[in-house]
């Protein structure tokens, strides 16, 4: 996969999915563009004014904790967020992001070296984040190949369409 370059939009620790996508909009189940209009709307309304498609979210520990609502990953993906890099992720959000084709990378120490508004390049194949101003690179754990494969195909649905049409299994081997 090509490295992804983008401007950093930074958040702190324990950003939960109620904050990313408020419960009052859960009745929106199919209109993904509509979901994108409500990212962080209740608690961080500045996001919808200041963030731009192509931005990369950098966050602290446990990003995406709480509810399993997939809209939390969908709204970011359809807003145009290019990827999320965090000190750590909550597991359901992490899987949802991959399944929707939203690149996610665990990069311990990233919040210490990257500031809001910086530009970074994330390389999923290498498992690294490069800070363009300083040239510093933060290593991260590389995603397993079959997970990268899901992201490469643009998400689980496209991946399954491909593998089922080949008569193959979605298995991990």
């Amino acid at each position: 996969m090509e490295p992804i370059k983008g401007r950093v939009y930074k958040f702190g620790d324990d950003i939960n999915t109620d904050v990313i996508y408020p419960g009052k909009y859960l009745s929106i189940t199919t209109d993904r563009e509509e979901m994108a209009k409500h990212c962080f709307e209740t608690v961080y309304p500045a996001f919808l004014k200041d963030a731009r498609p192509g931005d990369i979210i950098v966050a602290g520990r446990n990003f995406g904790c709480g509810s399993s609502r997939e809209q939390a990953a969908t709204c970011l993906r359809y807003f145009g967020i290019a990827g999320v890099v965090a000190e750590s992720f909550a597991r359901i959000f992490y899987r949802n992001a991959i399944n929707l084709g939203l690149p996610v990378l665990v990069a311990p120490g990233i919040t210490r070296v990257v500031q809001h508004g910086d530009t970074i390049v994330i390389d999923l194949e290498k498992g690294s984040v490069t800070h363009t101003r300083t040239g510093t690179t933060t290593e991260s754990s590389r995603l397993p190949d079959f997970v990268l494969g899901i992201l490469q195909d643009g998400g689980l649905i496209a991946h399954l369409r491909r593998s089922l049409s080949r008569g193959g299994e979605q298995g991990v081997e």
């Binding site: 399993s68 899987r95 399944n99 929707l100 399954l160 299994e169």
Partner: peptide, 18 residues
Amino acid sequence: TGIGATEMAGVWATGELW
């Protein structure tokens, strides 16, 4: 355990999950 909706669609299709 909890999973997302897209992942569940995969389960409905294959009956398996990693």
